[in-house]
Design a protein around this nucleic acid. Structure first.
Length: 565
RNA sequence: GCGCCAGUAGCUCAGGUGGAUAGAGCAACUGCCUUCUAAGCAGUAGGUCAGGGGUUCGAAUCCCUUCUGGCGUACCA
């Protein structure tokens, strides 16, 4: 449960404080209070492993030039038995620290001790968090937009779990409302077309044009023949929905499991209607005086909560809007099920809703004062084929489905590719994706893992297994490539913490890619097989640690770590 | 019009909440396999960080403004 980066930074704080006290005691610096600065990791390692800017930050209060302060710090600093081997003044007054063998040893020992738990922290203090994601309409197959949301939500949940939160994954099934009615209507027309011929019945403009609807109609026809032909349209549609919806939901479950996403719960929207929970929630808002009637509809005074417009809760036809249902659903998450925090992963086409919705949720009568509702808004995926932009729409039925995509490029590549930074538009080139074999960065990482596994296996066969026990002599691992690799290993916990804090699991992609790069460099420059026994053992331990962290990081993203390639 | 997200190398993108000479992958070019996996490594080339102001020791990063792109602004979800 150690965050080695934080430990190093804290230890620098301690060293600075001691040096400052000594400097004041020796009369080298006025006692104006210890300068408040920041410790960071410089991009360029020639500027040390860690750099502190305290001398620059303290120039004003101490009334001394930054470089003079820095020099005094260097003079008064005692690094004996610390995580650092040297410190020097540089540039405008930076204090540059270089790590010692003690720290490198500590990193490897920590990874050996913690095993697959390495990377975990208690940052989240078991706060109960629900991540709701995908939640695709069950009216058709999932698209590449869901591919992105799926990975982001799932990887975010994994990251939060490792950062010490108690995580729950949920899929919200929109099995009620207009879209579902439209779904039933669409099947109805396809069904009638099978019996009467395609030209006999016109397909509604706003219906679902996808082939999957035809398939459903065909299945119904094969099962029940013309049984529904003379039925009243409403009843017929209801029957078709009762058949089509569960069928689609099962299919989504199957495809998402293939995509390595498992939800703790598939929450049905219809359950909120049936239990009267929507009605009850709206009543709460009415009684609180936050509503008014206009044009036979019931409106929420959303502008009172800072939103840019009011919202309809109950339509003039008596049905509740998705908006009202959403409020009820989220009230249910917090109040009935006791989550402290809820994160909704939504596409950018819902961001307007997210802003207004967040405003509504502050209504005091909902009782959510101590709760956190956050949104992870991901930008759209732009599908291109070469230079041509492919328009995607579920209704027109032209969408590339998630399942097709998994067939084309494989689950690993898919998960790795779509785990990109949420707030940038993602360009997905079909031509490239299909071609993506050895070019794909996911193979670069997997290759590093496979390399280690086969190396370790080969060494074991020669009678040199990875030494057991956690004692490590990292002093032998003294080349630049070895240091760079160990430093990257040490970063894992911190990287997870930041990914959790920023809701950006794509950090893990970048982290593990860099880790693989550093391993490849190490592997090329440092021999293991014919090294001296002690050095060989130390390097085997380093390989072993690297293998575990790569596997662990890939597991977060949901990518397999192959032992052979 | 108003709101949200973005604009960094030919292409796809990083850039740790203001730090030192702006980075990586792909594409291009040049080297490296009789030695642990060449799906790898090393190197060359490639930039007005969209434009313009401002804040300060210091800005790709913060503020203002203009331009460009995506999305939103339904009694659809």
């Amino acid at each position: 449960m150690a965050n080695l980066i934080e430990e190093a930074k804290l230890s620098i704080d301690g060293l600075l404080e001691k040096a400052y006290k000594k400097a004041v005691g020796d009369g080298l610096i006025p006692d104006g209070g210890i300068p408040q600065g920041k410790v960071e990791i410089p991009k360029d390692t020639s500027n040390g492993d860690y750099a502190a800017n305290h001398a620059m930050a303290g120039a004003k209060t101490l009334k001394l030039p930054p470089r003079a302060i820095a020099e005094t710090f260097v003079l008064c600093m005692d690094l004996t038995d610390s995580y650092f081997g040297s410190v020097e003044m540089a540039g405008p007054g930076f204090l540059n620290f270089r790590l010692s063998d003690k720290w490198f040893t500590k990193v490897l020992e920590t990874i050996r001790d913690e095993g697959m738990d390495y990377g975990r922290s208690d940052e989240g203090q078991n706060e109960r968090v629900m991540v709701e994601f995908v939640s695709a309409n069950p009216t058709g197959p999932m698209t590449i937009g869901n591919a992105r949301g799926g990975v982001l939500g799932d990887a975010l949940a994994s990251v939060l779990d490792r950062a010490g939160y108690s995580v729950y994954r949920e899929f919200y099934v929109n099995d009620a409302g207009n879209q579902v009615d439209l779904f039933g209507k669409s099947i109805e027309v396809r069904y009638l077309q099978i019996i009467k011929g395609e030209d006999a019945v016109e397909f509604p403009e706003n219906g679902y044009h996808g082939d999957d609807i035809k398939v459903l109609a065909q299945m119904i026809y094969e099962k029940d023949g013309e049984k529904y032909l003379d039925m009243d349209s409403d009843a017929r549609c209801r029957a078709f929905v009762e058949f089509g919806l569960p069928y689609n939901i099962e299919l989504m479950k199957k495809h998402l499991e293939r995509y390595r996403i498992h939800f703790d719960k598939w929450f049905l929207e219809s359950s909120l209607h049936e239990s009267g929970y929507v009605e009850e929630t709206v009543k709460l808002l009415e009684d609180g005086g936050y509503t008014y009637e206009k044009d036979d509809a019931l409106w929420l005074r959303n502008t009172e909560f800072g939103a840019d417009k009011d919202e309809v809760l109950r339509r003039s036809n008596g049905f509740y809007t998705y908006y009202a249902v959403d409020i009820a659903y989220h009230r249910n998450k917090f109040i009935e099920r006791g989550f402290d925090r809820v994160i909704d992963v939504w596409g950018a086409d819902h961001h307007g809703h997210a802003i207004r919705f967040a405003a509504s949720m502050t209504a005091p009568v909902l009782g959510l004062q101590n709760k956190k509702l956050d949104f992870l808004i991901m930008q759209m995926v732009r599908l291109v084929r070469g230079n041509e932009i492919v328009k995607v729409s579920k209704r027109t039925g032209k969408a590339l489905t998630l399942n097709d995509l998994m067939d084309e490029i494989g689950v690993d590549a898919c998960r790795f590719f779509f785990n990109a930074k949420p707030d940038t538009h993602l360009e997905f080139d079909l031509d490239l994706a299909i071609r993506q074999d050895s070019e794909n960065p996911v193979y670069y990482v997997q290759y590093a893992h496979a390399r280690i596994c086969s190396l370790i296996a080969a060494m074991a066969e020669e009678g040199h297994p990875v030494p057991t026990g956690s004692e490590v002599n990292a002093a032998l691992l003294c080349s630049e490539h070895e240091h760079e690799l160990i430093k990257q290993l040490a970063m894992f916990t911190e990287e997870i913490r930041l990914a959790a804090r920023d809701y950006d699991p794509s950090r893990i992609n970048r982290y593990v890619t860099e880790l693989a790069a550093r391993f490849h460099r190490f592997y090329t420059s440092c021999r293991i097989k014919d090294a001296e026994p002690e050095l060989r053992d130390a390097r085997l331990v380093l390989c072993d640690c690297t293998e575990k962290v790569i596997a662990n990081a890939l597991d977060i993203v949901g990518v397999t770590a192959p032992e052979k390639m």
